[in-house]
Design a protein around this nucleic acid. Structure first.
Lengths: 207, 207
DNA sequence: ACTAAAACAGACCGATCGACCTGTCTTTTA
DNA sequence: TAAAAGACAGGTCGATCGGTCTGTTTTAGT
């Protein structure tokens, strides 16, 4: 339809896929899955309907890709990697909380944890969603449990107790983030961080 | 349009309003706000479009009514009242968790905390939603903080510390419920309950 | 160079969304 | 008891939803 003109088209399927995923990740995070239309994703990226559906045949497929290729890596980067690499577990957790608080304060608003947000909205909608989201939580807990086992207090605990402690940490973070989002304030995160710090110390999970 | 027939209409505006609110509360809880259509609410209750919009002119108005007339009372009944009436704070919290776990196990699935669910989905959509949801959280925290102040350990704390402890309890519950919903299991709630119990004891919040 | 597949563009589709509107019946008010 | 207001029914509307379709351009395989 268009004459070739001066502008020649250059296909960049991977780049386009990346742009779409980034935009969808951002929109799902900001407004939620159901509240975001395919049209918004197109407008945000400039991609056509044909191209969008070429890469992601359905909206569910797009969401699934967002979960596995954006949300999961985000959780790994912000939570799992620091926990595995930091000198001590309590230092790692304090650092992660501090980093998140810092991000919130410089952004001026709380959009919430991407994993939390999507888990709340999608874990009932589609079994595929639920499984992938659950496996992220599971991986997160495993990393935490393993690190707990390396501490003084954690070494004495059996597998189940370590898993319980890990679940408690994840729960506290998730909940404080929910509260932070609802109140649009970072203080619930700060409170949770300090309470968790005390709890970790008392349990001997510091080193 | 219809002849009078044998059946004479009896208006019951309050009853109809109640039925609509109950159905909407249940549907929003099960599938979320955006995933639930007005049509579903009509079909679930047998109410006509005209009647529905007579009582709730917009979907947002319906959601607002659900929050203030269903979600808030539910939180008061399941959380605030027990906390205020139970013999001790730790007993109250253990009891509330146990009750929720019991409900989940006999239902066989985890739909999540209504306040959590709606807060996640709506706190960004509408400032009116956010304010009403935030005030529920705030009331919840106040009740907890007050009860904390009546304990041995809590009496020594200033207002801010008590609020922080209350926020921590709410956060832990919210997060464990999120985890429970995501994994469709009550065990995160049990883990959080036992960890919280220990924490309460160590802080002197038992009595 | 030729061809088939992949990558894209954009018009188009039925379904459904929330909301509106007219009309009828019921209840309250004067 | 007449009139106004409230309660309710149901058809209808424009907008938007996610998705499809046809056609064109680019790329890869041979």
């Amino acid at each position: 339809m268009r004459a070739k003109a001066t502008r020649s088209r250059k296909n960049d399927p991977e780049g386009m896929r990346t742009r779409v995923l980034d935009a969808a990740y951002r929109l799902f995070q900001a407004r939620g899955f159901h509240a975001t239309g395919m049209r918004e994703v197109m407008e945000a990226t400039g991609v056509s309907s044909g191209a969008l559906h070429h890469h992601f045949p359905t909206k569910d497929a797009l969401a699934f890709a967002v979960i596995t290729e954006r949300v999961a890596p985000a959780v790994r980067e912000t939570w799992m990697d620091p926990i595995q690499s930091a000198p001590s577990l309590s230092k790692a957790i304090a650092q992660v909380f501090a980093e998140i608080v810092r991000g919130i304060e410089q952004r001026g608003s709380v959009a919430g944890c991407p994993l939390n947000n999507l888990a709340m909205e999608l874990s009932f909608a589609n079994p595929q969603f639920r499984d992938s989201l659950r496996s992220i939580f599971s991986e997160w807990q495993s990393v935490l449990a393993e690190r707990i086992g390396e501490t003084r207090g954690g070494a004495r605990l059996d597998r189940g107790k370590r898993a319980a402690a890990a679940a408690f940490i994840v729960s506290t973070y998730s909940g404080s983030m929910t509260l932070a989002k609802a109140t649009q304030s970072a203080s619930p995160l700060r409170m949770a961080a300090s309470a968790l710090s005390v709890w970790l110390q008392e349990r001997g999970f510091t080193a």
